[in-house]
């Protein structure tokens, strides 16, 4: 039998109040092992309070070749940002 341990992506919440952030990846045979390995590899300096692991093959990524159609149309929609609107200086805190 020649099957290698698959790759997993590791997401760690460094403290409550913060989101889980991608920390890196590792190899493990199953989810339980991935979680344990992630704990030992990525939180040994007290970096986390919560871990997510997901097998890398389950992640669907956008293709950079399509970045034009994916992301550029959002660039000129400046009315989505507060600075688009002209308001008098006297008006504070809005």
């Amino acid at each position: 039998m020649k099957k290698n341990w698959p790759l997993w992506e590791v997401f760690v919440r460094s403290k409550n109040g913060l989101e889980h952030r991608h920390f890196g990846s590792l190899h493990a045979a199953d989810a339980e092992m991935a979680l344990e390995n992630a704990r030992d590899v990525y939180t040994r300096r007290n970096e986390g309070v919560s871990i997510w692991v997901v097998e890398s093959k389950h992640i669907t990524a956008s293709n950079p070749e399509n970045n034009g159609e994916m992301f550029e149309p959002a660039q000129d929609k400046i009315y989505r940002h507060p600075t688009f609107y002209n308001l008098p200086d006297e008006l504070k805190h809005m």
Binding site: W5, H27, E36, R44
Partner: peptide, 11 residues
């Protein structure tokens, strides 16, 4: 047997 188990064992 693997890098990951080395790290765990050391812990």
């Amino acid at each position: 047997p693997s890098l990951e188990t080395d790290i765990a064992g050391t812990n």
